[in-house]
């Protein structure tokens, strides 16, 4: 009995096309629902502002914030930098810390999960560092490294590092023992099994860790910038508060939310490419 790929008859093909059409229609409807939910959100916000349910200096209407967005692209007032500079400054810091956290945290988690010795050496220190909120390091990093890129990237690093380690550690620990046996009976060395079987097995969890790390990195960054900075989105928000400009604060908050969403989405796409074998 040979298994052959089926050749679909024209009738089956028609059915498949029909199903695909149905699926496309359903996903289009879902997209429209999501778009309407965002529009509704802005509509209610606009209404609240228009009807003056809240004073204007508490809550600026969306259209004012949109106008401010256009202005902020070329006008450095009141915080001293244009919006794009603030965004780039924030991105630079968060990526520096975040990439360092992946490069160090992920391999460390894998090694801890696979090699007992590494685990015994690193785990006690890691356990102590883990519960410390990253922002608690801010005073120290300012003393050690000033208020520049290095200090803030370090804070970001500490917040992103922890989920990277924990998830890649857990992931490699969950390697199916049968697959390890497959490696052994094929005559693979322990390191080859670690490399060819352990790490691929850990990939799903590792990506979860990296996505958590992105969230952490981005939110800690804003906290760090609000305490010590001369540009960046967090700094812009802080200055908005100092000048009593809620519209500046809102613009900063929205920019943070939207950019965070974009980064996470890009990463999910990368995950789908790397883990394409999971697709059914």
């Amino acid at each position: 009995m040979n298994v052959q790929k089926q050749n679909h008859s024209s009738e089956q093909q028609e059915q498949i096309l029909k199903d695909q059409k149905k699926q496309r229609k359903a996903s289009y409807q879902n997209l429209m629902l999501s778009v309407s939910s965002i529009l509704l959100f802005f509509f209610i916000w606009e209404m609240v502002a228009l009807l003056k349910l809240v004073p204007e200096h508490y809550l600026a209407p969306p259209e004012a914030i949109f106008r401010l967005l256009i202005i902020k692209i070329h006008d450095p007032n009141p915080d001293g930098a244009v919006l794009t500079v603030n965004i780039l400054s924030s991105l630079q810091i968060s990526f520096t810390g975040f990439i360092a956290a992946i490069l160090i945290g992920v391999p460390l988690g894998w090694l801890m999960g696979w090699y007992r010795v590494v685990d015994s050496v690193v785990n006690p220190i890691f356990d102590i560092v883990r519960p410390i909120p990253p922002v608690a390091w801010i005073p120290l990093t300012i003393v050690w490294m000033g208020v520049g890129l290095k200090a803030k990237a370090t804070i970001v690093f500490l917040s992103a590092f922890i989920p990277c380690v924990i998830n890649s550690y857990t992931g490699i620990r969950q390697t199916n023992p049968v697959l390890i046996h497959v490696g052994k009976t094929c005559g693979a060395s322990d390191f080859t099994i670690f490399w060819k079987i352990g790490i691929p097995s850990a990939m799903t969890m590792t990506f979860t860790g990296i996505k958590l790390a992105i969230g952490n990195a981005w939110s800690t960054l804003v906290a760090a910038e609000m305490l010590a900075a001369s540009s960046g989105l967090g700094y812009m928000i802080l200055q908005g508060r100092n000048f009593g400009r809620t519209d500046i604060v809102m613009l900063g908050v929205l920019a943070i939310g939207i950019i965070g969403t974009i980064i996470i989405t890009l990463f999910s796409h990368l995950e789908n490419v790397v883990l394409r074998w999971k697709r059914k």
Partner: peptide, 20 residues
């Protein structure tokens, strides 16, 4: 120990899911 002259078919499905 393990010998390449002996090869195994496993009880549970033991394929590497990330490989074709």
């Amino acid at each position: 120990g393990v010998d390449r002259r002996i090869s195994l078919v496993f009880q549970r499905l033991a394929l590497l899911p990330w490989m074709t």
